[in-house]
Design a protein around this nucleic acid. Sequence first.
DNA 1: GGCTTATCCTGGGCGC
DNA 2: TGCGCCCAGGATAAGC
Length: 278
Amino acid sequence: MPELPEVETVRRGLLLCLPGQVIDQVVVLRSHSIAHPHPDEFAQLLIGHTFENVERRGKYLLIKLSRGAGLAVHLRMSGRLLIVPRRSKLTKFVRVRIILANQQELRFEDMRVFGRLWYIPPGSSFEKIIPSLNELGKEPLAGLTGRALRRLFEGKTQAVKTALLDQRLIAGIGNIYADESLFAAAIHPQTKAGKLSLAQANRLVAAIEKILNKAILLGGASIRDYKDSRGVNGRYQNGAFVYGREGEPCHVCTKTIKRLKLAGRSTHFCPNCQSVNK
DNA sequence: GGCTTATCCTGGGCGC
DNA sequence: TGCGCCCAGGATAAGC
């Protein structure tokens, strides 16, 4: 499940090989994967553009093209962007093929087909075509502080785990890193977001920063479907403390890791290490 | 307005 | 072996 570290890993991988490459041909194999414009137009309009830069905002990849155009990608649950030789074998999950003039190919694979691509025409902007970009919250690795987090969560009665997943508050955190960050900060996931003490908020911000940076260093987590742009699995999941470990002993206190549902999402925690503060 | 729940979607795991 | 059911989850719409 691509979250900020996985998207950042993909971004860095693409940045090594895409700039300067020219788009020769585009094949849309599943029209549903194209959010804007119509898939036929999407394919036609991309041809001839040169890749210039690859940026990230939250979990969105924002790829800058020549003549002021752009290509945005959201991997959602199972999307992958891979650079492969043009003639390499097609898997059944390939949704979009962006064929480059250098005989390589930027391939969008997406098993669960929630991922989306947008073409941004010259003269427009990512924010105009994807309005939700305007609503994204703070980047967790851009100087977020405990005080700022408390302000974001002020008055909120929802669980802190749910608030962490709200991209309008903090952009980039998903289910895995929300659970891991709350464990590292010793905060129970059901703690009301607005009730966090300054000490807890400071711990949580430090934990988020440490865990996201560690995950980026390890190439992200490959708990289910994620691979980086070279098709390589991340290694973060090998060091997970709670996510996906229901029923197993806590690495810190040996008590059993529990799981509950919050806002429809599986939430993993250690009932001993993470104190309740409702 | 704030929050929760349902929906989209499909492969994998599990039980029978 | 094959079938059916459940689960996973990011974003968004709908409902409370």
